[in-house]
């Protein structure tokens, strides 16, 4: 499903002393099946933007078109939009409330008024995607570890089988192993089902590793939009916005300054490893 955003504006606390324009004339097109990374400094409007995509916040002006439905038009059932556009908030484990893991994940599908066996199927599928074992299905979500809670909460959104999945810093506060596991699962999902994924992250490494296209926001505006390797060449521009490039990019830049001739397209550790091994082999020959 495609997402088209046209001239979106949004202001927090309009008419008060605390008025703040969070989004200014945002326009963006996302094709079906893209894996998008959304980066920006804290307060740049990322979270505000993604909440408009599934209709939780209504813009002051502008349009959001999902597929061929302009979602803020009169008569559009926002609940059906929210089933197609799954949104995983920051620290999603704070939304858990049910007695058992299974029931909590079933909350979304139940709200969709699905048949019981369909709900069962979806819940089991979603929990298996995030790697929660069957032995935990009947335990209380509050007895799980932090990482497991996070997975259960993500499964709660996956169980609705959205065609677009938006994740707001899904790995914040997780250990390195946990974050790669979760992001790998999401990447698999993206590849096998072809769903559109928008990943909001502060980790440039994660962006470099998983994402095809990066959208950079600053002060409520989209400042850059392009392929990962192109965006991460703009070190100075990103730093001026309080962002950075992956550490690997810094390494490559430093090496090039000292006479090496490495491609600036390299943004992940694996790519750097390959390039350096080839280079060293060539030198030793």
């Amino acid at each position: 499903m495609s997402i088209t955003i046209e001239n979106l504006n949004y202001t927090y606390s309009a008419d008060t002393a605390f008025k703040m324009q969070a989004l200014k004339q945002i326009s963006l097109t996302i094709k079906p099946g893209e894996f998008i990374g959304l980066i920006g400094h804290t307060g740049s409007g990322k979270s505000t933007l993604i909440q408009q995509i599934n209709g939780i916040l209504k813009p002051d002006s502008g349009k959001v078109i999902i597929g061929d439905i302009s979602i803020f038009d009169k008569g559009v059932d926002l609940r059906s939009i929210r089933q197609k556009v799954g949104l995983v908030f920051q620290y999603p484990e704070h939304q858990l409330f049910e007695m058992t893991v299974f029931k909590d994940v079933a909350f979304g599908p139940t709200n969709m008024k699905l048949q019981d066996d369909e709900i069962n199927k979806r819940v089991k599928h979603a929990l298996s995607i995030v790697g929660i074992e069957e032995s935990l299905y009947e335990s209380s979500p509050f007895d799980l570890s932090g990482g497991q809670k996070r997975r259960v909460a993500i499964a709660g959104v996956l169980a609705m089988m959205p065609e677009i999945l938006i994740l707001d810093e899904p790995t914040a506060g997780l250990d390195p192993q946990g974050r790669y596991e979760i992001l790998d699962e999401i990447q698999n999902l993206h590849k096998s089902l072809g769903i559109t994924v928008i990943l909001v992250s502060h980790s440039m490494e994660d962006i470099a590793r998983y994402v095809d296209r990066v959208v950079v926001m600053d002060k409520g505006e989209i400042k850059m939009d392009g392929l990962v390797k192109d965006i991460f060449k703009e070190t100075e521009a990103l730093e001026a916005m309080g962002l950075a490039v992956p550490q690997v990019s810094y390494l490559i830049q430093a090496l090039n300054k000292h006479g090496f001739n490495l491609s600036e397209d390299i943004v992940t550790l694996e790519e750097a490893k390959e390039a350096l091994i080839t280079l060293l082999k060539r030198e030793s020959e």
């Binding site: 909440q51 599934n54 939780i56 609940r79 929210r82 089933q83 799954g86 949104l87 908030f89 999603p92 704070h94 939304q95 909350f107 979304g108 709200n111 969709m112 709660g156 959104v157 609705m160």
Partner: peptide
């Protein structure tokens, strides 16, 4: 916090 949780549950189709 209420606002946040409310939104999160709305995203899961709560009414």
């Amino acid at each position: 916090e209420t606002d946040k949780i409310m939104k999160a549950q709305l995203a899961r189709g709560a009414d």
